[in-house]
Write a protein that binds this DNA or RNA. Structure first.
Length: 209
DNA sequence: GCGACGATTTCG
DNA sequence: GAAATCGTCGCT
């Protein structure tokens, strides 16, 4: 199977992200049906993207061909998984934010601990834990069967009217860009949290909102 | 070399 | 609201 739209131009990455809703990602005995994703555009175009300032050792894989896995380690604690999109050199990507575990629930539960089934992959780092992947999956292809991750089409199509869009979660810039997409009403979609500066002044008035 | 901070999660 | 916890990246 081929995935022609994964390498659509980076300018179309929001459409690519939308199209990925309902697709299934399998790794290590667990399959997740994607219910929430975020699009990140290429170098110089999207201040919220890790690749915004050009390639670095960490983001190098994003500049390669589409369909490979870009994982990054955040807060010294968690891994998050992206599918590299766009053409070579463009560095667009789609962050897999949440999904429904549709196969291997018991295995996912063993990795996540005792949580409600709907919460198994309800968040980008939780999705990665359920799939049982980590650093070793960095840079592997998700579309040619050579790596631990496998991308597969939806069993049932996700209709356009079932998709909502809004601001991306936790990003420090580009709050106005509605490049987070999710399946309306799906219980496995994560809660929206806006970016909170780490060194925020405490006890001041302007803290909330 | 150094330090600020992060596409998060969990607990209080 | 705030801590956990460390790799990454740009340079006050």
């Amino acid at each position: 199977m081929t995935y022609p739209w994964l390498d659509a131009p980076a300018a179309a990455v929001s459409g690519t992200a939308r199209s990925l809703l309902g697709w299934r990602v399998t790794a290590n005995g667990v399959t997740v049906r994607l219910t929430e994703v975020e699009a990140y555009a290429g170098t110089g175009e999207d201040p919220a993207s890790h690749a915004h300032r050009g390639p670095t050792p960490r983001t190098e894989i994003m500049f390669g061909p589409a369909g490979r896995a870009y994982l990054y380690f955040v807060f010294g604690v968690h891994w998050c998984l992206n599918i590299v999109c766009g053409r070579e050199g463009e560095a667009a990507a789609v962050l897999l934010r949440a999904g429904e575990v549709v196969e291997g629930v018991d295995l996912a539960l063993s990795r996540r601990g005792s949580v409600p089934t709907r919460d198994l992959a309800r968040g980008p780092a939780l999705l990665v834990v359920s799939l049982g992947v980590g650093r070793e999956a960095y840079g592997t292809s998700m579309i040619d069967g050579t790596g631990p991750l496998t991308l597969a089409p939806p069993l049932e199509p996700v209709l356009p009217e079932a998709v909502e869009a809004g601001p991306r979660v936790g990003v420090a810039s580009a709050h106005d860009v509605p490049w987070r997409f999710w399946i309306t009403g799906d219980p496995t979609v994560s809660a929206y949290r806006r970016h909170v500066p780490r060194g925020a002044v405490r006890g001041a008035v302007s803290r909330r909102q």
